[in-house]
Design a protein around this nucleic acid. Sequence first.
DNA 1: CGCCAGATCCACT
DNA 2: GTGGATCTGGCGG
Length: 206
Amino acid sequence: MLGMPRLPRSFFARPTLTVARELLGQRLVRLAGRRLSGLIIETEAYIGQTDLACHARFGRTPRTEVLFGAPGHAYVYFTYGMHWMLNVVTEPAGFPAAVLIRAIVPVEGEVVMRARRRAGAASAGRRPVPPARLTDGPAKLAQALGIDGSLNGHDLCARGARLFVERAPPMADQLVEVGPRIGLNNTPEPWKSVAWNFRTHIIEGA
DNA sequence: CGCCAGATCCACT
DNA sequence: GTGGATCTGGCGG
């Protein structure tokens, strides 16, 4: 459990679609008080200034500085007035691209994740939430893992990192579904429909 | 289960 | 001023 190697910077320095695909099945780890982790089951690629859904489409700005930086760093941004999104910067420095982590399945620290989710969401009388449902959206997993703007620019490959990805068995092609990215309602074609979303629903059963 | 409205604030043309 | 890489609760089938 604790001995698995972390994904090195060379993993993230590759083409974004490759990184997005290969992140499936890998273990996202967050050290926050205790160790929290989950297997990545959905990712999405945002690639360069020509991708009109990518935040870097307007070029270098204070917000996109991290995207233009070195691979293996977290790009965390705030949206919809209340949600944080976790991305991992890809490709060599100078080329703005990243992979959005859209969903994980809790492995360690489910109790803590549940508590963090409850703290942020209004909870009246409701049925128990299945583990996989705690982190099945980008804003939900960020909240469950305690990820916010303070982690923007965090180096996932640095010694002492409090957020990183550990190596796990690769996911077979037959378990991977490829489709269009989610939530790009106002993005022009072809960017709105390109199949840059990668996911699996196999792990959710466990 | 699907559809819809509302929440709430930041970055940008 | 506008719209967003979202989530939730409420309502209808």
